[in-house]
Design a protein around this nucleic acid. Structure first.
Lengths: 334, 334
DNA sequence: CGCGCGCAGGAAATCGCTTTCCGGGAGGAG
DNA sequence: CTCCTCCCGGAAAGCGATTTCCTGCGCGCG
């Protein structure tokens, strides 16, 4: 492996000069030497050792992103948004996937801390477990104490910069829209109990129905993914098909629900209406097109990174509103 | 920031002992000291500085993955597969996205080299440009010369370990299946000229048709994504709707094609059959369900990483067969 | 014509950790 | 009892950069 010293020797200059030429410095270097160093570096195929640079400089140019599951298009979009701004700032990205295990999330923070990454982005829902949240907060605290920067997308529970989607409000607005179409009996495919994103959306939906004086919806829990939606949807119709409209707390689950009804020969929206949440781009070509609540997912990732990198001392919490998008998967009730 | 020296002092032991206790070493440390060091580390909230470790050890525990676009479920699945095996080996992952710019790909290899990552995974199609490929090879060569390990998913053009999907053969098999259903006039939504994955699939398809004595299909180029498929599909039907079956060279394009036909009021498969390639899991709920060629995408990512990490001296090229999966998006021709 | 002053280049300390080498004490064999 | 081995602990030499100082040197100004 060719080192800076090799380059310096090859060029007949000192280590200091070679460093100044090859890795931006405030100091000037004469044109002659500069050229000799550059040629030497090229000839030898020199690549700076970033580990050494990071050590010497005391700061690296890597950021970390922790997501639940990269194959979930929600997280993929979030990560993509963050990675674009990262690239714009010349930062590299380390991605960790927890597969929804909170312990993994804590472990990743520790690892990224050890890597001395410039910032950590926590994407994905918090869970309803004070003990786990406490340990995560502690781990983050240690990182921040050492100069680390953190932002999170989701619930504002960690005392760090947060991009908080308006889950409650969005779900409530959706409920009102659906009620406006004449629906009275709802079901909610509510995701796992304990997952706050799911819980908030469910709660917002339920609360809005109550305000409208409508009966409480049937709430069915299930995994926060396609299969969870599929299974939960099955339980709803199994229950005598009372609900005329089903709200899945995210788009991926809604897709599972659509699949379930399709298999059972139920027509959407004629026999049952289905709505989701997120407005995932990859899912826009579903048939029937999903009614949902649009979240600017990529922007949220991008914004979170900006917050993390910003100089702001006090944690900033940024609300992101959702926008109800009515499409073919819901119909008016006759 | 707490350093190992702080811990050692706090525990009243030498640097060496602290190091041996906290970061696995072959050497034994007495139970008493060991405990003191561990407590000191915990009390101070010590996190090893990986940059320093990497420097001292001469090798890090990070690998790099370079993909075109994380929001493309194909690459998400590939990355996910690789990340699972990486996690299994205690490796961290740096992900870079090139957004299909080959220059970016080269730049990433250089950057990852500078990071001294243990291995680099190049996922995604090569392009048909010897000059660019040459420069990429050169960059990889430099990395490998310095002890780096490389694997690639796609065409075997780089002289490194390669997981090569059977694009030609898969497309040919698909063509035969479709012809078996009675189709005679085909169109191919062929992706950008110069993208080898697209070109290979197109070529395999065309060749198989020729072997069967069928007329050459209409070939329409377009971007390798959903919108590209949408646009290309439009050009086909615009052309008097001659083709009874349209082959999109990947699933994402096929989804675009389905959307295009839906908008135009063409029924799939009654009016036109559509087939894709890859069998992306996220897209399995499309209506009508996509006929496609299944590739074990996650396994391919995982396998590529294994190859990269393997001790094998000579580059290994592993063929991955595709399996034709007939679903509702194609119908028999009366 | 002499005297600072600014500036390019180099020597060396430093970053945090690993690991070799060395020394001392304990324990077993002769 | 002596000698030889082990074994554990510590001192110190790197790993590959950055960066602070320091040293000449050319130049403008009095």
């Amino acid at each position: 492996m060719v080192t800076l010293e090799d380059v310096a020797r090859h060029a007949g200059v000192s280590l200091a000069t070679a460093s100044r030429v090859l890795n931006g410095s405030t100091r000037q270097v004469g044109a002659g030497l500069r050229e000799r160093v550059e040629r030497a570096a090229a000839e030898l195929g020199y690549r700076a050792n970033i580990a050494a640079q990071t050590l010497a400089r005391g700061a690296g140019n890597v950021i970390g992103i922790v997501v639940h599951d990269l194959t979930d298009p929600y997280f993929a979009a979030l990560a993509d948004g963050a990675m674009r701004t990262a690239a714009g700032q010349g930062l590299l990205v380390m991605v960790g996937t927890t597969h929804r295990d909170p312990e993994q999330e804590i472990a990743y923070v520790a690892t990224l801390h050890a890597q001395r990454v410039r910032a950590v982005l926590l994407a994905g829902s918090r869970v309803d477990d004070p003990e786990v949240t406490g340990r995560l907060r502690a781990e983050l605290g240690r990182y921040v104490a050492g100069g680390g920067r953190v932002a999170c997308v989701g619930q504002d529970l960690l005392g760090v910069h947060t991009v908080a989607p308006a889950n409650r409000e969005g779900a409530a607005a959706l409920a009102r829209s659906l009620a406006g179409l004449g629906h009275r009996r709802f079901a909610v495919l509510a995701g796992p109990p304990g997952l706050l994103t799911a819980a908030d959306r469910c709660a917002g939906f339920v609360a809005a129905l109550a305000e409208l004086g409508l009966p409480a919806p049937q709430v069915v829990h299930g995994a926060f993914d396609r299969d969870g939606g599929h299974r939960a949807a099955g339980e709803v119709t199994g229950d005598a098909g009372r609900a005329t409209c089903v709200f899945a707390v995210n788009d991926v689950m809604a897709v599972g629900a659509l699949a379930c009804y399709r298999e059972r020969g139920l027509r959407v929206p004629q026999d049952v209406s289905v709505a989701g949440f997120d407005d995932i781009a990859t899912l826009r070509d579903q048939v029937p097109a999903l009614t949902t609540v649009r979240l600017p997912v990529a922007d949220m990732g991008s914004r979170a990174l900006e917050l993390a990198l910003s100089a702001a001392e006090r944690p900033v919490v940024e609300q992101v509103p959702g926008e109800v998008v009515l499409r073919e998967s819901v119909g008016p009730l006759d």
